[in-house]
Design a protein around this nucleic acid. Structure first.
Length: 496
RNA sequence: GGCGACAUGGCCGAGUGGCUAGGCAGAGGUCUGCAAAACCUUCUACGGCGGUUCGAAUCCGCCUGUCGCCUCCA
């Protein structure tokens, strides 16, 4: 489907729907953020880049987006069922740190890695621990309305009281309980009931006082409390990873709608997984390569380091609702393709700048409308970045060819402006070579010496002393410095 | 066991009832002292079996395979 208006795939209806904000031009968007107990990995990159694109494209379309993404610094249980230990507490215990130190450390590295990937920061990044009163209030409200019950210091949500429970994930309550592989906690009325508040014992590191005793909030309640606080009871978009569809998002809908009496998010968007050797890449599976390891090339499965921009481009070349199977070979293909796209764009840019005083006479063909239509039509079809990038390749190559043939389009400047917006503002990709921002080559003497060698080699070539010129090029190649001769002179690329 | 996805050429990966996806790799060529880059040309496809249709890789059914969720997870 391609269309002149944005359509998004809504998990609630399992269909692509026309996107109509509740209160245009404002769009409220909530995305489940990370649990900060470890470094972010490639799976996080796929998820947050996907929703970064959603946000960027909505802004391009003129919407005023408020993007809220939580930081989960409490509440997730580890191991089997509800009897486990908080993940952050567990690591804190092992590393002899306060839980908040763990959360702080990984919140920092999370944003550092996302910044590197050009993921724009959320407008609001609420912490779960900073919203305990809101969560308690919501739980109390659910008890008052008969949707939850307290028992031995725990509070559970009564799923039978929520008629729509199971709608999002397409399962009924029997399905949700009958095949469960986990022993269910004994004080629940129904095995499918989920915890809103958990009693904490003396060993527990993170705990708060509540009407039901000392404890800590269940996992699902934070997202409901914080999304409603910052976006209202009924808002436009809720996003997250596919694996959170059940139980997390299902529970969010149940508790939110029972609490407010309004319908919760209008559109539910889910991104698919990144796989490694065909298996989901996940922290708990131990097969995750962290983003830091990608950037530094410091994981045994990696042959080399990878520029964040290349990783972003690689992920954008597949659709967010498809799984992305990772391999270094695929990354390499993405890198080469990305560089060639940038070369094409830069040559159009260079031409535009050198032509800025010229009047193109007799030329009436415009390049932008067709390109823009193809690009927007792809993006309007549920953010199909793969197809949008294909349109970019396709059209810019043609434009470049026309310029080379002496038939530049008449709208070069508007074209250039739009290309800039499409690449940097919508896709979040940079024009410049990754090397140019590499700080490893900032030594003035090194740079001077390199230019000296290049000048000497040029002189040798002029004198047809190719033996010497090849020695210089080959010896530099040993340092991963590559020289390329062109009509405009010798270019060099520095080690990655 | 229940629920849900997916299966595209050497690789990655869009899409679609009849019309080129795109990228990478490969082949040939132009250019170049050479190399690289760039440019031009070019090859390979829709898991299997049935059905619907004038026509299906695209719709339907069955089969096979892979994956996800049902337990924290982007």
């Amino acid at each position: 489907m391609s269309s002149s208006a944005l359509h998004v795939y809504n998990t609630l209806s399992r269909k692509k729907e026309l996107f109509e904000p509740l209160h245009a031009p404002h769009v409220g968007m909530y995305v489940c953020g990370p649990t900060v107990y470890g470094n972010a990995h490639l799976g996080h990159a796929k998820s947050y880049i996907s929703f970064d694109i959603v946000r960027r494209y909505l802004r391009y379309l003129g919407y005023k987006v408020r993007y809220v993404q939580n930081i989960t610094d409490v509440g997730h249980l580890v191991g089997d069922g509800d009897e486990g230990e908080d993940k952050i507490s567990k690591i804190a215990r092992i590393e002899q740190l306060d839980p908040m130190e763990i959360a702080e450390t990984y919140t920092y590295t999370y944003f550092r890695d996302m910044d590197a990937l050009s993921v724009q920061r959320p407008d609001i990044s609420p912490r779960a621990t900073g919203h305990i009163p809101e969560q308690i209030a919501m739980i109390q409200n659910l008890i008052d309305k008969g949707h939850a019950y307290a028992c031995n210091g725990n509070v559970y949500f009564d799923v039978l009281s929520a008629p729509k429970y199971g709608q999002l994930s397409g399962r009924n309550i029997e399905d949700a309980t009958s095949g469960t592989r986990v022993e269910t906690a004994s004080d629940k009325r129904n095995p499918a009931d989920f915890a809103l508040w958990k009693k904490a014992d003396d060993q527990h590191l993170m705990k708060w006082l509540s009407p039901w005793g000392v404890g800590y909030p269940g996992w699902h309640i934070e997202c409901s409390a914080m999304s409603i606080k910052y976006l209202g009871a009924h808002f436009d978009i809720h996003g997250g990873g596919l694996e959170n569809q059940f139980p997390h998002h299902e529970c969010e809908i149940a508790q939110s709608e029972c609490s407010t009496g309004e319908s919760f998010a209008k559109y539910w968007l889910h991104n698919n997984m990144v796989t490694l050797d065909g298996q989901k890449m996940g922290k708990s599976l131990g097969n995750a390569i962290s983003l830091e390891e990608f950037f530094k090339g410091s994981h045994p499965l990696l042959k080399r380091s990878w520029n964040p921009q290349v990783i972003r481009f690689f992920l954008l070349q597949s659709h967010y609702r498809s799984t992305t199977d990772f391999s270094e070979k695929a990354l390499e293909a993405a890198e080469t393709g990305f560089q060639s796209l940038r070369t094409t764009l830069q040559s159009i840019l260079a031409y535009t700048q050198q032509q800025h005083n010229d009047q193109t006479e007799g030329e009436t063909h415009e390049a932008l409308p067709a390109l823009q239509a193809a690009f927007e039509s792809a993006m309007n079809d549920d953010f199909n970045t793969a197809q949008a990038i294909a349109a970019l390749f396709d059209h810019t190559k043609k434009i470049k060819r026309n310029i080379a043939d002496g038939l530049p389009p008449s709208d070069l400047h508007t074209l250039q402006n739009w290309l800039n917006i499409a690449l940097t503002e919508i896709l979040g990709l940079e024009y410049s070579e990754p090397n140019e921002t590499d700080s490893s080559f900032n030594d003035n003497i090194s740079e001077y010496l390199l230019h000296l060698l290049i000048d000497l080699r040029t002189k040798a070539r002029m004198e047809r002393n190719f033996e010497l010129s090849d020695i210089i090029r080959n010896r530099l190649k040993e340092l991963d410095i590559e020289l390329e001769d062109s009509k405009e002179g010798t270019r060099y690329t520095l080690p990655k």
